[in-house]
């Protein structure tokens, strides 16, 4: 079933460090599972932009957006009372049935973690929010850590991977090099990847990457993919995984490339 697309009213626009937290009325759009994503209309642009849900306050949805290009800048310029189309939730989010969750975020990759923490805390029934570690480029970017109270924060040149203890069930989102490092360091980690997407629902084939040795659409198979292995050293169930990036030490030649 294709998810719901609705015209939602903007209810808030707040600066969080260099980012914008855009709040909308929820309408009939479900917040979905943490790590799923939504396609946000970018006013005046041809294509919408994929965004994960940052917070799900009662009656609202909130998205954390880094205004890096014309589309994200157009979205960040929306003011309360404006409207935008939102399609979602899309894709596969994080598996939350893990015994020792640890949230790991890098930069704007913090975006899906506050909602993830909220849902995990609700599932834990009062046993508190899950631990989180965050890495940022600058102190200004690190201001976004306010969205995840209690998180341990580092700023470059310290990398977030230095803050990850062993044998945790890692749920991570961040830039590709960070995810590659987490993937290598944390067997069984759940990693929320990113790729250019025009549609978010399997129509455009723009987001295709190598998953499990085949070229597949990240929007359908992901965006959350599971690294091989498990924190305990056992073999992970058959979850889709992304091939390491070209140049990674553990990259084997893929059939598509050999052809």
């Amino acid at each position: 079933m294709t998810p719901r697309r609705e015209l939602l009213r903007v209810t808030g626009n707040e600066r969080v460090g260099p980012y914008t937290l855009l709040r909308t009325a929820r309408g009939g759009v479900e917040p979905g599972r943490p790590g799923q994503f939504f396609m946000l209309e970018a006013p005046g642009r041809v294509l919408p932009r994929p965004m994960s849900l940052c917070l799900a306050p009662t009656g609202e949805l909130a998205f954390l957006i880094d205004p890096v290009g014309p589309g994200t800048q157009a979205i960040c310029a929306l003011q309360p009372g404006d409207e935008l189309h939102v399609l979602g939730p899309l894709g596969n989010g994080f598996r939350l049935d893990v015994p020792r969750p640890l949230l790991v975020g890098g930069g704007i990759g913090i975006a899906p973690l506050p909602y993830t923490a909220q849902v995990l805390a609700a599932r834990a029934g009062g046993r508190g929010v899950p631990p989180a570690v965050l890495g940022f480029r600058t102190a200004l970017h690190a201001e976004a850590a306010v969205l995840l109270p209690g998180a341990e924060v580092c700023i470059e040149p310290t990398y977030v991977t230095a803050l990850i203890p062993a044998a945790m069930d890692v749920l991570a989102c961040g830039p590709e090099p960070m995810l590659e490092a987490v993937r290598a360091q944390c067997p069984g980690s759940q990693l929320a990847w990113e790729a250019p997407m025009a549609c978010g629902y399997g129509a455009c084939y723009g987001c295709a990457i190598e998953i499990d040795g085949e070229i597949k659409r990240l929007c359908i198979e992901g965006p959350v993919l599971t690294a091989p292995g498990s924190p305990d050293g056992a073999t992970a169930p058959g979850s889709p995984d992304r091939a390491p990036a070209p140049g990674s030490p553990d990259r084997a030649p893929a059939p598509a490339e050999a052809a």
Partner: peptide, 23 residues
């Protein structure tokens, strides 16, 4: 055909570019 390697799509001010490569 697996199609072309990423990046496969890009937006411009007036349209969209794709290079999926007949996957």
């Amino acid at each position: 055909r697996g199609g072309n390697p990423p990046i496969r799509i890009a937006e411009t001010a007036v349209g969209m570019l794709n290079s999926i490569g007949l996957a």
